[in-house]
Structures are given as C-alpha cells and as structure tokens.
C-alpha cells in the first residue's frame, strides 16, 4: 500500500510536468490549430538558460523568474518571426516549420552547452517528507505545488482579466474579435509567449530528476502529447487532467507490470495515443468540431 501511495504521488509530480507542457500545446492548438512540435525543445532551451544564470551565481528563484520572462519574450519572438509568415499556409507547412524549430533548438543547445549531461539543482530540500509511514520526496511535492500554482495563476488570468478575455475571444472567433478592436495577431503571439512559460516551468521542474541534456524533453513531450490527446486538444482543463492521469498511469504501469518496466515507456505513451485516437479521437473532454465542406 505504501508503495502504491508513493508511486501515485510521484506519478502526480511527473504528471504535473506533462500537464504543464500539455497545456502549452493545447493553448497554441486552440489559438492557431497548430501542434507545436518544438514546444519541448523550447522548454529545454529555457532550462539551459536558467542553468547558465545559476552558474553565473544568480540565486535560484531569481534565475527561475528571469527564465520565465525570457521564455515569454522568446515565445513571442518565435511566433512573430517564424510562425507568422506561414500562418495561412497548409497545416503540413506549419508542422514542418515547427519541426525545423525543433531541430534548431536541439542542435543549438548542443552547440552552446555540449551534449554532456549536467546536474540541475532542485530548489526543494533533499530530505524526504514523512506522512504516517510513507515517505515522499520533497522535490515531488514541490513540483506538484509549483505546477498547481502556475495553473491557478493562468486560470485566474484567463477568467478575470480583460487581456485574458481578449485572448480567449481571439482564439474562439478571430473575425468578430477583430471587429471589436482586439489585435488578434498580438493575442496569438501572447499565447505563444505564455505557452513558452509553461514549458519553461516544466523544464526547470523535471531537469533535477532527469539531469539536463539537449534531449531532455523528448520523452516528456511524447507524454504531454498523450496527456493532451487523452484530455482532448480542444479542452485546456481536460489536457491538464490528462497530463496528470498519464503521469500516474506511467508510474503505476512501470511499477506493477513487470514486462514493461522502464524500457518500454515510450511505447506505453504511443499505445495510449493510438488507443485514445481510435476510441475517442476528441479525447475525454474535447468537443468534436463540425466543419462545413
């Protein structure tokens, strides 16, 4: 039983990471109908920036916040400079452009910081927390708290601020939004910026567990895909829940199904994606979009 609870909690911790990245993917998907294949690599890049700041002697939370600001600006720049020219191109072109971004971020990170694995500090104490006779790693609990805080902030932002409302409007109905004076293009860019922020949070929280290297986010991204698919690409809340579910399932399957272990982790994610897409392509909470042809 203790093992079970421990595994569920650590599953929730990694699930939070997947949830943050899945939310980033869904935000961009909702606004622009694009899945950003470079989301994970952008997050990895942001994590390296944080690492450089830490190395230069910046205290952890200062570097954390600094990275979030830079990630936000970076996301906006990427949308403005790289994505905007192909905004109205066929989906295939946009997917290819985001794949281009993926390999650029990956290789530039390798170029600057080399492919050697780097330890990344955790801001939380290394002493495990004890509840009853179950031990939890402090980093896991901290991860969950940080993720939940970020999700709460973003929910408040979208629900109660005029800018959040404008961003939702721009994603929901660009034409009418433009008519009431919302600058739709900039709203999309802000969406990319926010998505980059979620990615950066995910990256900085997972890096202490996985150690930092240019391929840090490959595995995380496939699970974020699975989470977003499970919850539904059209439902931000669903994607977050999907991310948590995927994290827990991943951990439990890895612990209790012996023939899978950790060696077939990606295959589990692949199977989840394919099963969801076959059984309920819109995901648990998604709505099917009816198109007029």
């Amino acid at each position: 039983m203790e093992v079970f609870i421990q595994q569920v909690v650590s599953g929730l911790a990694t699930g939070g990471i997947y949830a943050a990245l899945a939310l980033a993917l869904v935000m961009i998907y909702q606004a622009t109908d694009v899945v950003n294949f470079a989301q994970g690599e952008m997050a990895m890049f942001a994590t390296y920036i944080c690492w450089s700041m830490l190395n230069a002697g910046v205290p952890y939370w200062g570097a954390f916040l600094g990275t979030l600001v830079l990630a936000f600006l970076g996301g906006i720049v990427v949308e403005r400079v790289v994505i905007r020219p192909v905004e109205n191109a066929p989906i295939l072109s946009i997917v290819i452009v985001t794949l281009g971004l993926l390999v650029i971020f990956n290789s530039v990170a390798g170029w600057i910081w080399t492919y050697v694995q780097k330890p990344f500090p955790s801001p939380f104490p290394s002493k495990p927390l004890k509840a009853g006779n179950v031990f939890f790693s402090a980093h896991d609990i901290g991860e969950i708290v940080v993720t939940l805080l970020v999700l709460l902030c973003i929910w408040l932002f979208f629900k109660f601020t005029p800018l959040g409302l404008a961003m939702r409007a721009a994603a929901h109905n660009p034409v009418s939004s433009r008519l009431v004076g919302i600058r739709v293009g900039w709203m999309l860019a802000l969406g990319w910026g926010l998505a980059a922020v979620f990615g950066a949070v995910a990256g900085m929280m997972i890096a202490p567990v996985l150690t930092l290297e240019p391929n840090l986010m490959g595995g995380v991204q496939i699970y974020a895909f699975a989470g977003a698919t499970l919850g539904g690409f059209t439902s931000p809340g669903g994607a977050v829940l999907g991310g948590f579910i995927v994290g827990v399932v991943e951990n439990l399957v890895g612990t209790y199904v012996s023939f899978i272990g950790t060696e077939l982790k990606f295959t589990v994610a692949l199977a989840m994606i394919i099963v969801v897409l076959l059984v309920k392509p819109t995901g648990l909470f998604g709505i099917s979009v009816v198109k007029r042809v």
Partner: peptide, 28 residues
C-alpha cells in the same frame, strides 16, 4: 487502417510517437 481515422495533425502526432518509440521496441 487506424490512420484512416486520424486526420492531419493527429496522424502527425501518432507517427511522431511511433518514431520516438522505435529504438525502445527494438532494444526490448
């Protein structure tokens, strides 16, 4: 056959995950 049901982006997602999973399956 299952890919028939997946349009555009979803097919991209499924095949991308397939590509990520292949080395693991081969090692298994």
């Amino acid at each position: 056959l299952p890919a028939l049901r997946l349009e555009g982006l979803y097919l991209a997602l499924a095949t991308f995950s397939l590509a990520l999973a292949v080395p693991q399956i081969l090692k298994y």
